[in-house]
Every structure is written in structure tokens, then in C-alpha cells.
Write a protein that binds this DNA or RNA. Structure first.
Length: 773
DNA sequence: GAGCCTCGAGTTCC
DNA sequence: CTCGAGGCTC
């Protein structure tokens, strides 16, 4: 147990023993319960307040946990007595359901990965080439262990910690300020820091602390964590900062975001500066003078790994010179000046019990390995992806043998690892342990969910079910996609609910969502009769199909008559009276659905789930066509895959022939089109304003060319923005070009611009010109 | 036509 | 997170 955690329950002293001699919860009277809840609330709140900044907490952690457990038990037995200030809710700060979102002043990027020595040498070569350095020129890098925790950005203004945010998707994270303040390694105040300073680093948990925490959790009857990283993540993301305060979290600083004044001229200098300000910097951080030195340092850190006392998953190298870092800049998701050299993934052998096929929303048949559960990298894995047909067969997309041509069979012993420490994959097969009766796996040529043909297009890696909305798996996945975050994002209608409603026959397609309330009011929710639902699953050879329907109907086992009766009953029962719903949640659901009848064009386009058309493409299309009517007309006009409408579509930067054909086909096919029309009939589609071409912008009427890589904008965005400001964007530089915006890596176009005497500026200058935002 | 970069789609476990 | 494939640049 760490020094920070007061002690074990048996060291709790008289108070603890007294607490434990309480009346069992089951025997409490109402009045006793009420009194005790008040006392527990007082005590726990006081403990939470006292905990911060004092060496010795008022009560030991084990007792704190017991009091909290008792409070929860009493609340469970007497829910009506639960206090408004219940300690089981958020302590201190105003109760919040989730963390507030925080937009990072500077994006928190991830790092490119390297696995081999070769990758590191390539990294060095690439950087030298990019910077135009000669082979022998000196170039140093910092190296430091890559801590296996979660990244955190700390914002200090005038030396005070004002905000702590998780990485999130890099652009927007979660505000965990109250929690970060409870971490001992994170200073509340800095002296001598720039006015604005964002410190970035990793929150982690030491092995010993992790084990002590798990022991405590187990004793308190709460869930234990699979590994220190999960424990650290789970602890930081507590809505109750009082809980975080009791978790032994630590913090290493490794970088920074926005700063009002430079920290130093080198990476190493900046880290020293951060250390001087009071941050912990990893003690294994060193300076390397080239790839050979970096690899030697990698070997040293790998050696030291087992003794460190905390998890690391590789080594990070960064160009030391900050001016060079700036010249190298960033790609869309990673800096060019840094790379993470990952340790080999942990491997584990286990038995492949079965190969199952899942059907996705596009009809893709994906094989999933069902494994005898095995621990890999601290997590128990029982499923793993097998990618596709070729991967199982031991062939690559060109039909060449891979992995020595070992085909994977049910019953085999397979080697599993977690790619990027997350996604379990099957890496290898032990042929010597293959059972004699193992047959080569035959990839199905019909859809296991609906029996339709599953066809593999020429040159495609995946086999797809052609059943469309006939296929229950595709229908459910389409519905899930429809309600997902970037699409309709209907509160109270998540994956579980749509799957359930589909099984009950209440929803067949997205349009049905908007008629649900009406059907609910008339006590006839089912669009598919119970008899039909039952016939459907009885036609399915797999017993789990029946079981799933029975479960959706709220039964434990398949019994045709009972299922039929339940389906009838549920269809006729208002949602508000169905178990697990209630008046308020039903009301909220219908309100949320109604609120989404008005939907922005880009969300609608994404929600349709047309192949190759994702979030980004939907946004582009919406900006170009503006309104639903305009968009549909364009799809119809382009149906022949030729003509001006087709040219306009494929002329959009980011839309090629494949996506265009996919779009046009979706609107031309009678059934798919009818489904779309049924949906849109329920909606009011908000136009997306292609910001009106401004006549007065500094670039209005000019011809602009973008070249090289842009860092703050995608090319498509840059083009759209420039056009919105009245500029014409061209692909090649000519005498007619007014302005060239050249990012790093610009080649022939920048040279041509120089030859022609065309004005050339960099991306930042461009953003200044058009007014930033 | 090759090579790079980004997007889309599919994946697991908590 | 990773793979595959689409789309763009050179």
C-alpha cells in the first residue's frame, strides 16, 4: 500500500471498529436509516474536504470506502430517503452527468509509430531530407520512455492552474480540472512561468500503487482494474473528484501546447525549464546524437523496463532543436519531428474455438475469432479480428501466401496480440498442435444472417451480403449508424434501443423512428407482425436467432406461444408502461426524436450510410449543394455518370469516381430511393450555408493555388474556404495565378511560382490574410 | 503510374 | 487502432 493511502482497515483505530459494529442494513428501521444517511453524508463530505493538501487524511481509505459502501447499501434499501447531497453523487462541485467539453488551444496530436530499427533510421533520413541537411551534419534528438497512461493538458494562466483536459479526439477533450488538482505531481501554482502555459504530459499509476488500489477495491466489494492504465484512466475520469483524490495518480510532463513565451530553444531545455517549474520529468530522458545512439538508448530503456515500477510501452524521440521542430511541422494527426518506437506487443497463445461471421452495415462479412480466454497485456481477450477471407486462408489481396501459407482453422492454437495495445488480432498459428481432424475453414458464400448471396467484387478484400435492408444484420447496423453521434444522434435511442426495437418489429428502417410515437399512442407499435417475426427466426438455422428474439421480448428461453403473446402485448403497451422505460424516459425519447425532425443536410447525408460517404464527404457535399432539393436534383442529373452534373460532382475536391458512383447509384435504385424519400418526408432538412462568396474579402476574385502540405486545414477545407471568400482555386500555377500558398514539402509548383514571379506565402500568412478563424 | 495522405469501415474491451 | 482503398500530387 502506498504511503499516501493511510492504512489498512485494521489500523483504523477505535473509530473504525465502532463503525463496523453497526446494525446490519437489512435490519435498519426507516428512522434509523434516515439518521444514519445524514451522519454518513456529513462524515464523507468532511473527509473529502480534508483530504486535499493534508498529509494524514482524517479517516483511512479503507474506512472511507466502507462508509461509502454502507451509504450506498442504505440508499438502495430506502431509495426514498436518498439525500439531495448524497455522497454517492458528486461531492463538492455541482453534480454533472458528464464532463464538460474543452476545445484545446492547440490540438493534442498522437505520434507516428515505429517498430523496427529500420523505421528509426528512415525517420532520421526523412527528417534530414526534409530539412535539407547534409548526411554528416549534426542533428540531435531527445529520447524518453513512452509512459503507458493517458495524456493530459494543463493550462496555467498567470501561474495558476486554470484548466486540465484529457486528449479526447485531439481537438476537443474533457474538462477534468477538479480531478487534476488532486494529483500530487501537478502544481497548483507556478512561479516564473509564461503568462499562458499549457503543460502536456502523462497521468499514470505505479505498479505498487495499482496493486494496493486493487486490493482496496476488492475489499470494498468494488470492481478491480485490469491494469494500471485502466486504473489511471478510470480514476481520472471520476465525476466525483473526492474519489480521484484517493487514487494514487502521478504525472510526468513531456511537452507543451500554447505558450505565451518560448520555454527554451531546445526540447531538452524546455523540459529542464518545466522541471524547474516543479513538474516531474522522466529520469530516463536523454539526448541522442543520431539513429545509432537512439537505438542504443532504446535497448537501455528496454533493459530497465521491468525495474521501473510503472508501465511504459516504448521510447519517444524528438528533434531537439525547437526551431527545426517548427520547420518540420505537423501532418494531419502527427508531428513530423517526433516518433514513438514501440516495444514489441505482448503475445499469448490460446485455442481458436470457433470462427464466427459478423455482418456490418455495408454487408461486409467479417470473421471474428472466438478464443479460449487468455490474458494479453493485462487484459483478458476472448474475441479477436481475423480481418477477412484472405487472412484466414493465408493469402494476401494478390493471392500470395503470407505467414508461410498457414491457413487458420477452428481448433488451432493461435498467437494473439493487441495491435496498438488495443485491438486483439490473431498473429500466427502453431501447426504442430493442429488437431488431426481440423478442416480448412470454408468462408461462407451466403450471408449467415439472411441467407442471401455474399459476393466478393473483383479486387475487393471483403465479401458482402447483397441482401440490403432484407438482411436483419444490415438493417440493424444501418439503424445504429443512423442514430450514431455524427448522424442523427438521438438521445435515449442508442444502439441497444434500436436493436431491441428492430427485433420487436417496431422499426424496420430509419423513417420508422419518426412514426414511433404515433404508433405508440395508438397501441400498435409493431410494423412486422409477431407471426412474421417468429417465422423469420424459425427459418434461421442458428439457435441464437430464436434466443435473441426471446430475449428482446423479455423471456429467458424460446417458447413460440409465449414469445408470440409477449410481442403482441409489448406492441400494445405504451412505452411509458414498459419495464425499464417509464413515463419520463418515454417522454424524453419522443421529445428527442421530435427535436431531430429538423436536421442539417450534412448530418442527413452521413446518416444515409451510403458507401464511401463518411462524415467528411457529407460535410463537403452539403456545402457544395446547400439544400436537399438541390442535392437530390444533382444526383438525378448525374445518374448517367456523365454530363455537367456528373462533372460538377466529381469536380469536388475529395470526391472521386468511386464515391460519385456510389452516391448516384443509391439515389437511382428504386428501393433505396423509396426508403430515402420515406425518411425525408418526415423531416425538415436545414440547408447548410455555403458561406456566401464575399465580394469584399482580400482574396475575392483572385486565383489561388495550394501546394505542399497544409497543417491547420485539410486541402479540401482550404479550397472550400478560399472559394467561400470569392477566390478561384486552381490546381496548377500559371501566369494567371495571383497567389500561391505553399506549405512545407512544396516542390515544383513553388519553384514555378518563383519563376513566374507569383506571390508565394505560407499557410500562416494565408490564414492571417483571410482572417484566421 | 507511383507514392503519399486521408478517409471510411470495421474491430475489442472497459 | 489498423487496414484498405480512394483521391491527389508529382
Amino acid at each position: 500500500m502506498s504511503a499516501r493511502n493511510g492504512g489498512d482497515n485494521d489500523t483504523g483505530g477505535p473509530v473504525a471498529r465502532d463503525e463496523l459494529r453497526q446494525t446490519p442494513v437489512a435490519e435498519l428501521t426507516q428512522a434509523q436509516a434516515k439518521t444514519e444517511l445524514r451522519r454518513l453524508a456529513d462524515e464523507l463530505h468532511r473527509a473529502d474536504r480534508k483530504y486535499h493538501g493534508e498529509d494524514a487524511p482524517e479517516i483511512p481509505d479503507a474506512l472511507y470506502d466502507k462508509l461509502k459502501a454502507r451509504n450506498a447499501a442504505i440508499e438502495e434499501r430506502f431509495p426514498d430517503l436518498k439525500r439531495p447531497d448524497s455522497p454517492s453523487e458528486t461531492v463538492g462541485a455541482a453534480p454533472a452527468e458528464t464532463f464538460a467539453k474543452v476545445t484545446h488551444a492547440q490540438r493534442m496530436l498522437s505520434l507516428a509509430n515505429a517498430f523496427e530499427a529500420e523505421d528509426i533510421r528512415d525517420f532520421d533520413t526523412r527528417i534530414r531530407r526534409y530539412l535539407g541537411l547534409e548526411a554528416g551534419a549534426p542533428l540531435s534528438y531527445t529520447s524518453e520512455p513512452k509512459i503507458d497512461g493517458l495524456s493530459l493538458s494543463l493550462r496555467y494562466e498567470a501561474g495558476r492552474l486554470v484548466q486540465a483536459a484529457t486528449r479526447g479526439d485531439g481537438a476537443v477533450g474533457e474538462n477534468v480540472t477538479a480531478n487534476a488538482r488532486t494529483i500530487g505531481d501537478i502544481p497548483e501554482r507556478l512561479t516564473g512561468a509564461p503568462t499562458v502555459l499549457e503543460v502536456r504530459g502523462e497521468v499514470y499509476m505505479r505498479h505498487a500503487d495499482f496493486e494496493a488500489l486493487n486490493a482496496r477495491q476488492a475489499e470494498a466489494g468494488e470492481k478491480t482494474f485490469a491494469n494500471p492504465r485502466n486504473a489511471a484512466a478510470g480514476s481520472l475520469r471520476q465525476l466525483d473528484a473526492g474519489v480521484t483524490a484517493r487514487r494514487p495518480l502521478r504525472f510526468f510532463a513531456y511537452g507543451w501546447g500554447e505558450v505565451s513565451a518560448p520555454l527554451a530553444e531546445t526540447q531538452m531545455g524546455a523540459l529542464d525549464r518545466l522541471q524547474g517549474l516543479g513538474f516531474a520529468i522522466n529520469e530516463l530522458t536523454t539526448l541522442c546524437d543520431g539513429p545509432a545512439d537512439m537505438l542504443a538508448q532504446y535497448a537501455r530503456i528496454e533493459q530497465a523496463r521491468a525495474e521501473l515500477g510503472y508501465d511504459i510501452d516504448g521510447v519517444v524521440y524528438k528533434v531537439d532543436d525547437l526551431a527545426l521542430q517548427q520547420r518540420l511541422g505537423y501532418r494531419s494527426t502527427t508531428p513530423r519531428f517526433a516518433i514513438a518506437h514501440k516495444f514489441p506487443a505482448e503475445l499469448a497463445w490460446t485455442r481458436l474455438e470457433a470462427i464466427d461471421i459478423q455482418v456490418g452495415r455495408t454487408g461486409a462479412l467479417s470473421p471474428v475469432a472466438r478464443l479460449t480466454p487468455v490474458t494479453v497485456g493485462g487484459v483478458v481477450v476472448s474475441n479477436a479480428t481475423l480481418h477477412n477471407e484472405d487472412y484466414i486462408a493465408g493469402r494476401d489481396a494478390q493471392g500470395n501466401e503470407i505467414r508461410g501459407g498457414k491457413d487458420i482453422r477452428e481448433g488451432d492454437w493461435v498467437q494473439v496480440y493487441r495491435a496498438g495495445d488495443v485491438i486483439p488480432k490473431v498473429a500466427d498459428v502453431d501447426l504442430s498442435r493442429r488437431p488431426e481432424d481440423a478442416d480448412p475453414y470454408r468462408f461462407p458464400e451466403t450471408c449467415p444472417e439472411c441467407g442471401s448471396a455474399a459476393i466478393r467484387e473483383e479486387g475487393d478484400a471483403v465479401r458482402r451480403c447483397i441482401g440490403g435492408m432484407i438482411c436483419p444484420a444490415q438493417a440493424v447496423e444501418k439503424l445504429k449508424h443512423f442514430v450514431s453521434r455524427g448522424a442523427f444522434d438521438i438521445e435515449g435511442l442508442g444502439e441497444k434501443q434500436v436493436a431491441q426495437f428492430y427485433r420487436l418489429g417496431w422499426l424496420r428502417e430509419p423513417a420508422d423512428i419518426f412514426t414511433l410515437q404515433e404508433r405508440d399512442a395508438s397501441h400498435r407499435k409493431a410494423l412486422v407482425s409477431p407471426a412474421e417475426r417468429i417465422a423469420r427466426v424459425e427459418a434461421d438455422a442458428r439457435p441464437e436467432a430464436r434466443l435473441r428474439l426471446a430475449e428482446a421480448a423479455g423471456l429467458d428461453a424460446w417458447d413460440r406461444a409465449a414469445v408470440h403473446a409477449r410481442l403482441e402485448e409489448l406492441s400494445a403497451t405504451p412505452l411509458a408502461e414498459i419495464k425499464g422505460w417509464g413515463a419520463k424516459s418515454a417522454e424524453n425519447l419522443f421529445a428527442a426524436i421530435a427535436a431531430r425532425r429538423r436536421i442539417a443536410l450534412d448530418r442527413l447525408l452521413f446518416a444515409l450510410g451510403i458507401r464511401h460517404v463518411g462524415e467528411t464527404a457529407s460535410r463537403l457535399l452539403a456545402r457544395v449543394y446547400g439544400t436537399w432539393e438541390e442535392f437530390v436534383a444533382a444526383m438525378d442529373d448525374a445518374a448517367g455518370c456523365t454530363g455537367p452534373a456528373w462533372d460538377r460532382l466529381t469536380g469536388i475536391d475529395g470526391v472521386g469516381a468511386v464515391m460519385a458512383r456510389s452516391l448516384v447509384t443509391a439515389f437511382a435504385q428504386a428501393e433505396e430511393r423509396a426508403g430515402i424519400e420515406r425518411l425525408v418526408a418526415q423531416l425538415e432538412v436545414e440547408p447548410v450555408e455555403a458561406p456566401p462568396a464575399q465580394q469584399d474579402s482580400p482574396v475575392a476574385g483572385k486565383t489561388v493555388v495550394f501546394t505542399g502540405s497544409l497543417e491547420k486545414l485539410t486541402r479540401a477545407e482550404a479550397k472550400a474556404r478560399a472559394e467561400a471568400l470569392g477566390a478561384t482555386v486552381s490546381g496548377s500555377v500559371s501566369a494567371k495565378t495571383d497567389l500561391v500558398v505553399a506549405g512545407p514539402g512544396a516542390g515544383s509548383k513553388a519553384r514555378k511560382a518563383a519563376d513566374l514571379g507569383v506571390e508565394t506565402i505560407d499557410e500562416d500568412a494565408w490564414l492571417d490574410l483571410i482572417g484566421g478563424a
